[in-house]
Design a protein around this nucleic acid. Structure first.
Lengths: 256, 256
DNA sequence: ACGACCGTTTGACAATGTCGTACGACGGTC
DNA sequence: GACCGTCGTACGACATTGTCAAACGGTCGT
């Protein structure tokens, strides 16, 4: 049976749909969007609800994601070797750099944040573990693309135009290719306000025992602190690269 | 079709199984545990893998939870009204109390942590959003049980014996019932090292516009700081109750 | 070289999910 | 206040779909 189970694929599509919209969705909305009969969508939703993957608003009858997914998401983190091994190194990188640290991995052409350490100054910051970033903007994403294992290189990005987030975002595929070549050559990536205005970041790839890039670690923060007259801060780069090597070593990458 | 979709239920059972074990599981393990033919479990796993809900270890062939679940879990948080409305209040409660703050909600007889603010002293703390706590130990759980809407009261806990976590854990159902009555009478719950040795906590219920308890908010920390000679700290209780009322008000609970 | 286990594939059967249709309830509108 | 549209939900017939026993080709430990 080399085919996939239809109902499960559809259930996943519904969940994906719900995770995209913040607003709660009605049965009809989802059925229309997925091209399913309303009754079919309803049956799937009823089942998803009974297992806790979706919840129904008692007043409007509309559906939203369920709490069981939150717990499963955090269970995923527990079993994630990259994150587990990197915990301590991320902490110490944050302490040395004095900036917030993120660890990301490539997931469907985007960067999934699997760990996030706040800047150690007690300021209020929103945790964004579990959030997705574009791969072509941001230091983590560029590092992952440049060293991308499994052939998940820039190729997968060529289907659609590169979105522009700030004036500095690289949207030309050729320019991005050059940038990635440069990153590969020097071993680290820099984001110069390409994802968020006023924010810069540095990142380096993490590799596992088969020398495959499985993630990236980096720091980010306001341009005023993280660059000097528009130039990269060599000390931060060193910290980030050391942290990346340390994590890679923990994962069994012998070559480091 | 008032029945549920079998394959989706089975898929959910597999995911639940994987989220329980930290170790990766083999097809045979799961099939045996769920009483399914191996080939059936395999078909479900293949589908779950193709939608990113599970991943397969390239070396051992075993399965673990997938990254898509992490993103969906965080999407759940975005759409969660309780958490969204409570964000600011949780921050200010943490600042006033000087201790870590948690917000939890009842999920299948356990407390699911939906928000967590670190103690504002910059010390290293592990985020446990998404983790589950027992309901009969811990201030959040007891507050939720005491004010539990939807009839999710202590009754649901009587099927199995109450687990003992520390010497102070309440394991006798009658004692727990008394404790819950007392909590309901005074409007707040206290955990005196009942969940973790050396740790105490305070919590109060959060209600929505229909006066239904939808969550609880509380602080917790070391017994040395959070109690005075074994007695409850009145100031902390006031802070916690004020925060709970503030969130309830935001949710539209008019009675507050 | 054996045996035990692994993940995976196959193919036939019927149980299973699908989907057109219809019901009752709610919320606007003229 | 009767109308209309839309909502979530229920029913039931059909055949698509998923299920399952058995077997395949690995890899490991022996």
């Amino acid at each position: 049976m080399p085919g996939n189970i239809q109902s499960i694929e559809r259930a996943a599509a519904i969940l994906r749909l719900l995770s995209g919209r913040t607003r709660r969705l009605s049965v009809g909305d989802m059925a229309a969007e997925l091209g399913l009969p309303k009754a079919t969508a309803y049956g799937i939703l009823r089942t998803l609800q009974s297992v806790g993957f979706v919840e129904q608003d008692a007043e409007t009858g509309r559906y939203q994601l369920g709490a069981a997914l939150l717990h499963m998401g955090s269970s995923y983190l527990d079993g994630n070797e990259l994150r587990t091994r990197a915990l301590n190194w991320a902490d110490s990188l944050a302490a040395r750099a004095g900036e917030s640290v993120r660890i990301g991995t490539l997931h469907n052409g985007e960067v999934l944040i699997v760990h996030h350490v706040f800047r150690p100054d007690g300021s209020r910051q929103a945790l964004d573990v579990g959030s997705l970033q574009p791969a072509h903007a941001g230091a983590l994403g560029k590092a992952l693309l440049a060293f991308g294992g499994l052939g998940i290189g820039i190729g997968s990005l060529e289907h659609e135009p590169l979105a522009q987030y700030t004036p500095a975002t690289i949207t030309d595929p050729d320019r991005l290719r050059e940038e990635l070549d440069a990153i590969r050559a020097r071993g680290w990536a820099m984001d110069r306000q390409e994802l968020v205005d006023g924010e810069v970041g540095y990142a380096a790839p993490i590799q596992d025992r088969r020398a495959m890039t499985v993630g990236a670690i980096g720091v980010s923060g306001p341009v005023e602190r993280l660059s000097e007259d528009g130039e990269a801060r060599a000390d931060l780069i060193a910290y980030v690269r050391e942290a990346a090597r340390a994590v890679s070593r923990e994962l069994g990458a012998l070559r480091w």
